[in-house]
Nucleic acid binder design. Structure first.
Lengths: 199, 199, 199, 199
DNA sequence: CCTTAATCGAGACGGTACGTCGTGTCTTTAT
DNA sequence: ATAAAGACACGACGTACCGTCTCGATTAAGG
């Protein structure tokens, strides 16, 4: 019958990591990334602290790992290709923001907050989420240029920053992920005008 | 008779607060707002922890107080009135950003970071710095409307958020206050176009 | 109509002392002499700490004062003179021990306990309670010698110590004042035999 | 191969306890049990407060532990058996009292003093020192009865209390352990007469 | 297959900071 | 001058975490 043989009392590798992820997620949801303690996560996961510190240097790194593991499941790696710049942009923003349900938004908030004290966290975050997304965005824009929706010229990098900045600002200050209406509003009234979008 | 006061061995009210502010500033500069400890601030200020906790509930509140006390000295309460919207905007942004020298920028960074865990901090911050600045900005824009530089219509509040969002984003992610050139860039390529500025 | 004129908001001298005594007694009953705090006593008495420290150097001294003020009201200053050594001894012991009701016994217990750290407390205690009692005891014994109940010779001072030692020992270890039966037992089976009492 | 162990940088169990005992003894000798602080004991022992609180709930319990550990090394567990009741009694009292050198006497004083606030301390004290000694004393008396030195009848328990009471009374009030001469005096003029000792 | 090395669970260790409380002194305001 | 109120400087309290380390038990790998 090939049962997975978890009769054992000790867990190893992936099995353990799953348990820790679950424990960390619970702990962070309850106490925030800031209030989470390695002690409690270990207790919750039914393991010792050493097993945690062997894999993650501190709570932040663990938190980021859990966050990204959870998010990258639900965030589509490729942005939509609708044939319309507006739809591509709105769609990708919506799909990004909508992937943060309740607790995940708060975890993201705390990760952003912790960025101020942890350059490695920023780096890892960009490497695993920011950079891929930026690359996709570039594709979206290049397709729009090819279609003639926007002028073929270098795009002011400042414009790239605006959505990120706005999302993190709202999240930090109000604790809310921007909703779908705000996404459309941002695209229609800020991004597209600045890109000299026509039609 | 003009005796120089302060013959006393114990400090009272304002005198003590000055000492604490200085101590807290030093401590925060060295260890960050996050790494600052009430113990050490008290020791530095030559007082006891009780005197601190009597006035501030935690390090964040103290940090904010010190920050605002320092900043509100150097930030001009009224924005410039040059007769030109562009000059008004660029001038006020520059004067705002340039008031954060070295350590102050880092303190601001940490305050923004801590905002994620402390709604009262946000409130106090807005009350003492954000709101007055927004009011001034409204004046600037009304003057520009009167002069006919921008259309007389309600301005999308999203636009108000962009500078704040950008400043805090850059500060969190890169630890830098945006420089004068970026200020001009932001005004010329983002704000003014979105305001439908003519001439 | 000669009302006692406590219309004033400030109390003076004796009036204040009465209030402090009452407050201290309440505080000590609740928290023990050890757990009593000047802060709370002042608060209870509706006065400031300065008024307390102006009169008593510390909680122990105040406690002793309250204790003696209360006790010396109820302890008869002179021992009985019944014409019988046994009756004199039993009577004086009983009248002494029976003057400690509930809370007072605990206060005495704590005073004895604090004696270990406060020589002045011992001194004051002896001066105001121990010495007078010893003097009375000497009278009792001299009368007995005159009546021929015990030999006319110097009495071993060790015997004087036994009742005190026993009372304090029982109080410290068990928290109880010795009862009337034990008083009689002590006199009949220890003190009188050692005094070579006849008949 | 007989390696000398203890190459480690961290101490474990017994090793740590030894260090703490030494530190506590030093601290108590300097500041008294009352003035001793967990902070300082930890500092002296080169450990953290947590390691102390993990084992002892407060300074008193630690003090008692140190005291008993030190005393039970030097106090002979079995009383002498000289064939003479007087010698047995005097010998055992002397050997008991003489085991308190300088600082130890003061520690005992403070422990007795603290007994007033800590029933568990009394219990532990009796369990580890008082009860064994009483058992030995019973043996001494039974041997004396067998030899016919004292009448074979139940002994008034009050008599058992007298030495303890006297020792603790002297210690509390004068800070002194009774000396050898007083021991003999007590045995010859109080204990033996009350036991109806003959010869 | 059996040893050897690694990892697991548990928790102690040496530290640091927390926020509260109590002390005894000192200042302020008002009687 | 002294009462009431409470701030001040100090330092101990007992708790919670941190990140490291130790320890025996268990398991996986490799010769």
């Amino acid at each position: 019958m090939a049962l997975p043989a978890t009769t054992s009392s000790r867990r190893t590798g992936d099995e353990l990591i799953q348990a820790v992820h679950a424990a960390a997620l619970a702990e962070i949801s309850e106490n925030g990334l800031r209030g989470a303690s390695m002690d409690r996560i270990a207790k919750r996961a039914g393991t010792g602290k050493a097993a945690l510190y062997r894999r993650w240097p501190n709570v932040r790194a663990l938190g980021l790992d859990v966050f990204l593991a959870t998010i990258t499941e639900s965030v589509p790696q490729a942005f939509p290709n609708t044939g319309s710049l507006r739809e591509d942009l709105v769609g990708s923003m919506k799909s990004f923001t909508s992937s943060f349900h309740g607790p995940m938004a708060l975890v993201l908030r705390e990760l952003i907050s912790e960025s101020a004290h942890d350059p490695e966290l920023i780096e890892e975050f960009n490497r695993r989420l920011g950079d891929p997304m930026e690359a996709e965005l570039v594709n979206v824009l290049q397709r729009a240029m090819a279609r003639g929706e926007i002028p073929t010229k270098t795009i002011d990098p400042l414009i790239f920053e605006l959505p990120d900045a706005l999302i993190s600002h709202r999240l930090l200050m109000r604790g809310e992920i921007i909703d779908d209406i705000t996404c459309e509003h941002l695209v229609d009234n800020v991004i597209l005008p600045l890109l000299e979008f026509r039609r």
